[in-house]
């Protein structure tokens, strides 16, 4: 069925209706989460008790808003810190990987490329426990052997960063690699002919060309890190990132405070996504 082939009215209408239903299905959970952030009640459920901003700005019990809830604000700060480290690291390693697979031919390259893809097909929770086991064994070994207590190897933010980095790097590599593949090598050769050194040519020609993909990789990595749950859950210490902090609260029973945080998250990630799209369009 394509538009150029005539079909019965009934069939095309039913098809369009199905697509509309699908998008309602997609939007529904997000709409209710956003809507109940403004419910003047202790529970994010019906009946509707009237409109309020208290879940954002409220300063007194029982309605303490997001902007006055210290533990949530701290969790957001932790998440931003983790996401920033993960994105920066994976962008740099992704760039290096993209150059390696694009510019060099060496024995075992195909195999190495498959290895590079593997983190995508390992369940996140298994990545988490394997890194937990390895780092604890290393930490215990260092303690038994040298009496060194390495705090960074115990569950905590550094392990969370490593755990997320271990699979987000694959995605950064793929994003940057896809753009590098489309690069016209003759541009770089022209720079070399004009007397530039190899590194100068890469710095002044190739890297500016790759910039949109690098920003894209950074933003995607940031979002993935921010919303990661499985790997983080296994590696987290006492400072919980936002998703873990929200999960702990949700288990105890939810208040519209969580809706308010969720709405802010939606706005934040849409904003990031729009910035990324604008960047991609401009280049």
């Amino acid at each position: 069925m394509i538009p150029s082939i005539p079909q019965s009215r009934l069939l095309t209408t039913a098809y369009a209706a199905y697509v509309v239903l699908f998008f309602i299905f997609l939007a529904l959970p997000l709409i209710v989460v956003a809507g109940f952030a403004f419910n003047d009640s202790q529970f994010p459920s019906l009946p509707w008790e009237g409109f309020t901003w208290n879940w954002f700005f409220g300063a007194e019990r029982p309605m303490i808003g997001v902007f006055h809830e210290r533990s949530i604000l701290r969790a957001i700060g932790t998440s931003v810190f983790v996401a920033f480290c993960v994105s920066a690291l994976s962008m740099v390693v992704g760039l290096s990987n993209a150059f390696l697979f694009n510019r060099y031919k060496f024995r075992g390259q195909g195999l190495l490329y498959v290895f590079m893809l593997l983190p995508l097909v390992i369940p996140g929770i298994v990545l988490g426990i394997s890194i937990l086991v390895a780092s604890s064994r290393l930490a215990n070994g260092l303690w038994d052997g040298f009496q060194w207590d390495v705090e960074a190897l115990r569950p905590g933010l550094w392990l969370v960063i490593l755990g997320q980095f271990s699979f987000i790097t694959t995605i950064a590599t793929l994003v940057i690699g896809a753009r590098l593949q489309k690069f016209d090598r003759t541009l770089e050769e022209a720079a070399l002919n004009l007397g530039a050194g190899r590194l100068t040519a890469i710095r002044t020609i190739t890297l500016p060309y790759l910039a949109p993909a690098m920003i894209g990789a950074f933003v995607v990595a940031f979002l993935m890190s921010f919303e990661n749950f499985n790997t983080t859950l296994m590696l987290v210490g006492s400072d919980a990132p936002l998703t873990i902090a929200m999960f702990d609260r949700l288990k105890e029973g939810s208040t519209p405070l969580l809706n308010a945080v969720s709405l802010l998250l939606m706005l934040g990630s849409s904003l990031l996504a729009l910035i990324m799209i604008a960047f991609q369009k401009r280049s």
Binding site: L28, F226, F229, L265, M266, S270
Partner: peptide
Amino acid sequence: LLCLVPFWVSELVRTFGWMIL
């Protein structure tokens, strides 16, 4: 683009939405 939107919010928020529903 509309298909991508739910991906931009965390899985926790999506699950929370279904709990409310």
